[in-house]
Computed example of a mutant assay.
Amino acid sequence: MSDKTHLPVGAEAIRDKGWLTAHKYLLLRRASQLFFLFLFLMGPWLGIWWVKGNLSGSLTFDILPLTDPFIAAQGIIAGHWPALTALIGALIVGVAYALIGGRVYCSWVCPINPVTDGAHWLHDKLGMTKGWQPKRETRYYVLGMVLAVSLLTGTIAWEFVNPISMLHRGLIFGVGFAWAFVLAVFLFDFAVSRRGWCGHLCPVGAFYNLLGTASVLRVTAKNRAACDDCMDCFAVCPENHVITPALRGQDDDTPLILSPDCTNCGRCIDVCAPEVFEFTHRFDATPAPGRVRAKSTPAPRADKAA
């Protein structure tokens, strides 16, 4: 394993590329998350109603309907057939995320992502142990349970506890019970399970994961032969199991990260000094030579893996 694993995460990239370039996609994601959140808050806060509603369902300029397809699915299962505009909105959103990557929602739009990222940052700063890690498949069981409860109760069940909606309500109405759900997510990721909410439990992420199974936008380890084993990509990736097949592959193995678990957050691109990773599309057939290495490849260090 490289001596560079002992450097702080991202230090080599900051040295070689500069601080801004080494944080480019992180900064763009935060700007994107704030932008979408502000669109929904302009009405209640400033009286500018360009967008009415929230991430569950909205109407932009009184023309463009957008509906969370997960919400629409719950409504249909509950026996409440959505209005035509809501169905059109769900179709628009569904097709968009099916093309660009379902979990792009998680990393570029969802306002809970900064909350869980903050919990992860503090967790690492304090040197806390990894904690309890439920299986990643657990989120699909939670997704199934949400749909089952919607069917049995005739309600859009997830909206009663959805931290995304609660955060939106809290920002509009101020301090109140809604913040308890947001705080619970933060404390869960901070004290119970590192990256546990988004990566292991959230049914919204599970739904968008399924939606983006065949998405076009992908990250590729195109320059994997230049990898210096610093392990920083594993440290920052919220779903670091998706990296190994692309990065450790041989000549005949695709360098594309094709797992729908990938959130396309771009942090692996940010922190990689030799610039192994880049955004591309799933039809990119550019050859990427495998790496010459010993038969046994050391696993990511437990204290650096995200």
Results as ranks from 00 to 15, higher is better:
residue 140 Y to P: 11
residue 141 Y to T: 12
residue 141 Y to F: 13
residue 142 V to R: 07
residue 142 V to C: 01
residue 143 L to F: 00
residue 144 G to H: 08
residue 145 M to P: 07
residue 146 V to E: 01
residue 148 A to W: 00
residue 148 A to N: 07
residue 149 V to E: 06
residue 151 L to C: 13
residue 153 T to F: 03
residue 154 G to V: 02
residue 154 G to T: 02
residue 154 G to M: 04
residue 155 T to L: 15
residue 158 W to K: 07
residue 159 E to K: 12
residue 161 V to I: 14
residue 162 N to W: 12
residue 162 N to F: 12
residue 162 N to K: 09
residue 163 P to T: 09
residue 163 P to Y: 15
residue 164 I to V: 14
residue 165 S to E: 15
residue 171 L to K: 01
residue 171 L to T: 08
residue 171 L to C: 08
residue 172 I to H: 06
residue 174 G to P: 09
residue 177 F to L: 14
residue 177 F to H: 13
residue 177 F to D: 12
residue 178 A to L: 04
residue 179 W to P: 10
residue 181 F to I: 12
residue 181 F to W: 13
residue 184 A to K: 08
residue 191 A to D: 01
residue 191 A to N: 02
residue 196 G to M: 03
residue 198 C to V: 05
residue 199 G to M: 13
residue 199 G to T: 11
residue 199 G to K: 11
residue 200 H to G: 05
residue 200 H to W: 03
residue 200 H to A: 09
residue 201 L to E: 01
residue 204 V to R: 08
residue 208 Y to H: 06
residue 208 Y to W: 03
residue 211 L to V: 04
residue 212 G to K: 03
residue 216 V to N: 14
residue 220 T to A: 11
residue 222 K to G: 04
residue 224 R to T: 06
residue 224 R to F: 03
residue 230 C to D: 02
residue 235 A to N: 00
residue 239 E to Q: 13
residue 240 N to I: 00
residue 240 N to M: 06
residue 240 N to R: 03
residue 248 R to K: 03
residue 249 G to A: 12
residue 251 D to R: 01
residue 251 D to T: 03
residue 251 D to W: 01
residue 253 D to H: 11
residue 255 P to Q: 07
residue 259 S to I: 02
residue 260 P to I: 06
residue 262 C to Y: 00
residue 264 N to L: 00
residue 264 N to R: 01
residue 265 C to L: 06
residue 266 G to M: 00
residue 268 C to G: 11
